[in-house]
């Protein structure tokens, strides 16, 4: 929810999307690179949740706090679900599964930033 976090998260999400599509095009399942990418993405999202939690404990709050919290914690589930779902897929579409998950994360972090900047009380 600060650009300092949103930009790297978006960069990793875009990279992971391209990587996922690359394995589909190459006719491969997902490999170590994908897992590392998803791990980095998830770590950034956890940092984001902690930073937001600390800021909110300090009295900062977005206008639509429930929606913000929904996105903040919902987005944590997406890379995990994407990796689990992609790993059990043995065809070339595993990469596309991961690509869809990371693209969704890429969109959600910007929505979070938007929600955060609509400051409340």
């Amino acid at each position: 929810m600060t650009l300092v976090l949103v930009i790297p998260a978006t960069a990793v999400a875009v990279l992971l999307t391209l990587l996922g599509l690359a394995s589909t095009v190459a006719g491969r399942r997902i490999g170590l690179l994908h897992l590392v990418g998803a791990g980095v993405l998830e770590a950034l999202l956890v940092v984001q949740a902690v930073v937001a939690g600390v800021a909110m404990a300090g009295g900062d709050a977005p206008a639509d706090t429930p929606t913000f919290l929904g996105y903040l914690f919902g987005v944590l589930l997406i890379p995990v679900a994407g990796v689990l779902w992609a790993r059990s897929e043995h065809t070339r579409w595993a990469g596309t599964v991961l690509a869809v998950a990371s693209a969704a994360v890429g969109v959600m972090v910007w929505r979070l930033l938007q929600l955060w900047e609509t400051a409340g009380a």
């Binding site: 394995s23 679900a81 595993a94 869809v100």
Partner: peptide, 25 residues
């Protein structure tokens, strides 16, 4: 980039997986 892929066989693999993930999201 990962091990070589198997051919899309059953009804619950392949493009269907992508769709299920989208529905889940």
């Amino acid at each position: 980039l990962g091990p070589a892929a198997e051919a899309s066989g059953g009804a619950s693999t392949g493009p269907a997986r992508v769709l299920v993930l989208l529905y889940g999201i």
